[in-house]
Simulated assay, not measured.
Amino acid sequence: MRRIFRIGTVAALVLLAAGTLQAAELSQKADRLHVSGMLDGSAAREFAGRLQQGGVRVVVFEDALGGSADVAVAYAQAIQAAGVETEVVGQCHAACAYAFLAGRSHRFGEGDQVNALLIPVAARPGAQELGTRWRGDAARQTLAEFTDVDAAAASAVPAASAPSSPARGSRRWQPEHGLLFVSSPTLFGRIYNTYYCDGSQGRDFTRCELLPDADPRQLGIVSD
């Protein structure tokens, strides 16, 4: 694969990927509910409760690096029921990405950080599929595929050691395998790109493949 990122983007993504995953944490600032860490279910009930209470306009996923598919569904359902917007600040991977797509509108945050959304896919999509996959029923079908893989992987191992994401033996999706949508700050404003990561690169996202003519805003991934 071709090397794709500017030096600043490389450093930001590699350093974040090397960090230790932590359980989800919630914090609210005015009408913005921030979610960080891994969507492991530990804060799912509190998350749904805060949305049911009202007063939240935007759910901000900030450096949320994965989690389990069933929890992604729980977060997505709570977001859809409340009709709130979603935003990514920093990294949002796998389970977080699907919860993000459930927002009434969804966007990348501003500021000087690199924002990146990693959505698991079974295979490299063609240009036509890429343009329609993230809208309406097509997006929900992608989530269903991710959920099916996660359930199959969990049933293949003892409960005590079940992974929080699909096992590496899965034939449909591997960790770090998917589409990476990136918003990077520059002196002339933000630039938006889409990359395909086949999983062989591990956490070194600099080895992912740049996809031509795939602006995340035009694809419907982000609204801004």
Rank of each mutant, 00 (worst) to 15 (best):
G66Y: 01
Q113F: 12
A167F: 05
D70L: 15
S200V: 07
A153M: 03
S68V: 09
D31P: 11
A97C: 07
R45G: 14
R171K: 13
A123L: 10
D70C: 09
I79A: 10
S27P: 02
D63G: 07
A116C: 08
E62G: 03
R107G: 08
R124Y: 01
A82G: 04
V35D: 00
A102S: 13
H93T: 03
Q28D: 07
A102W: 05
G109L: 07
G41H: 13
S105P: 05
A153Y: 00
A64S: 15
V114N: 03
D40C: 03
D213G: 12
T186H: 04
V56R: 10
R32D: 11
A154R: 13
Y192N: 09
Q52K: 14
A44K: 07
V157L: 04
F146T: 00
R203F: 12
G131C: 05
V73R: 15
L26Q: 12
A23M: 08
T142A: 15
S27Q: 14
Y192S: 02
R133Q: 12
F5A: 03
S68L: 08
G109N: 09
A159C: 07
R207C: 12
Y75G: 06
A122E: 09
L187C: 04
W173E: 13
Q91K: 08
R171A: 12
G103Q: 00
E25F: 11
A154C: 14
I191M: 10
A72G: 11
R168D: 13
T186G: 01
A94I: 02
G109C: 11
A12M: 11
A162L: 14
R217I: 05
V56Q: 10
A159S: 13
S170I: 02
L180W: 02
H177R: 13
V58H: 03
G178T: 01
D198K: 11
L13W: 01
D63R: 08
D70W: 07
G111C: 08
P125Q: 06
A17V: 05
A82T: 06
L33R: 01
E129A: 15
L13D: 04
D40T: 01
